[in-house]
Design a protein around this nucleic acid. Structure first.
Lengths: 238, 238
DNA sequence: TAGTGGTCTAGACCACTCC
DNA sequence: GAGTGGTCTAGACCACTAA
């Protein structure tokens, strides 16, 4: 019998299915290589090849002596990782975020559509301002969450850390699996100009992000506007 | 005797060295797996693993029945791949480029420094304007080449194709090995505004690129400014 | 038909982690 | 010491390419 699909791809699909179904979430240990080999009746070498591929895809990572784990999403890959301040040395810059608004309200038709929920669904709106050196406002972030998924987060007493996702994952056991980002630039609107202490019309960089949980379900949409003069993004082409 | 470095890494280094030294250039066939195995006295499986790694890194690609080749640089990975026009569907848009200036002149101190050549070295300056739908100017590109490396390119009779690198690689046998890009945004200066038919101060996206040939030698620096309203860049975070 | 890469196996031995 | 992943080998057989 001739196979069309190689065995290692079957193994890959098996593992990916465990993840996509939510059966395994980021940080979880997957079955060991000998276990997978026995379960799927293939050699351990074939399992290794399948895992190798997923490791290269950054969906898994290995830890010798411990096992193989499902990767956590890495927001260091965000296009906004490269906000810099002052010199152009590409130094790491810490951005402190302050929550300026936090309230529940029904979503507009447009926003609900992006969140893939019925219009009027109750959402949690969070607005934050990012500072560099604790004083210079460089970005403003408008975020909408599906309120049901983060119950109580509207409570002012819950402290929101700079990396909001950390809180969501730990407190609400809501695995963040992936996100899509679109970067554009535009002239600054009045409201944003006031917050960022710049002239309206000054260029700002705009990042729109859609964040997903297990099963490709949208949990958050976010728009971040940042001072263009404090932004640069660097890559290599090979 | 205990090894610190695994054998497959030695094989990887061997292949990478062939490439970095200019001994193999993009498009070349590397020695076959059995040949490498014999040369380096390792098993073919170990060679496979080394090549696998380099294939994942996109430094090599395989073609069953033919062999393994050194990858060509892929400018589709440029941050400017995502210029779009009209609807926001992320459609592929063809940008036609017209050469508006082309002349030899000694480089300024600053530019020569970026090109890593002595100040005053003769450079070829090329200015091009990019159109969408053959009529709407969306970007302008200022490029400086080390003149010695592309002799005769200043001649108006030589047609410059949209992808200038294709010409350079074929006509001058100058392998392009990699490039670095930095993306920023700013308010449009007067000269650029005139060309792009927009108001000065309107946001433009600015891409600075440094292009390298074998041996990590710089061959070109380029600055591209494009209408921000026609630009968007999308990625996924996992 | 010869040569190339692609898949898959079985097994040896090593290195790290945890109990 | 038991279990995990990491390295390396030898060899069988398949699939594609080119002459």
């Amino acid at each position: 019998m001739r196979r069309v699909e190689p065995l290692y791809q079957i193994v890959e699909s098996y593992i990916v299915e465990l993840i996509d179904s939510g059966n395994l979430i980021p940080g979880d240990l997957i079955p060991s290589e000998p276990q997978l080999a026995a379960t799927l009746a293939v050699s351990q070498g074939t399992v290794k090849k399948a895992i190798d591929n997923l490791v290269w895809q950054k969906r898994l990572y290995r830890h010798q002596g411990k096992g193989t784990y499902v990767s956590r999403i890495d927001f260091n890959n965000s296009l906004f990782r490269f906000f810099s301040y002052g010199d152009e040395k590409g130094r790491e810059v810490r951005i402190r975020k302050e929550t300026t608004k936090r309230k529940l309200k029904p979503g507009t038709v447009k926003i609900c559509k992006q969140l893939e929920v019925p219009a009027g669904t109750v959402l949690l709106h969070i607005e934050r301002v990012g500072y560099v050196d604790n004083e210079l406002p460089v970005l403003i972030e408008y975020s909408w969450w599906i309120a049901d998924l983060v119950p109580g987060l509207e409570n002012e007493e819950i402290h929101i850390p700079d990396l909001l996702y950390a809180l969501v994952v730990e407190k609400y056991r809501l695995p963040i699996t992936r996100a899509e980002e679109t970067l554009t630039a535009e002239g600054c609107d009045k409201a944003t100009a006031t917050v960022l202490e710049i002239e309206p019309g000054t260029p700002v960089v705009v990042l729109k992000r859609t964040t997903y949980t297990a099963g490709n379900r949208v949990v958050e949409i976010r728009t971040t506007k940042g001072r263009a003069d404090k932004f640069s993004y660097k890559t290599e082409i090979r």
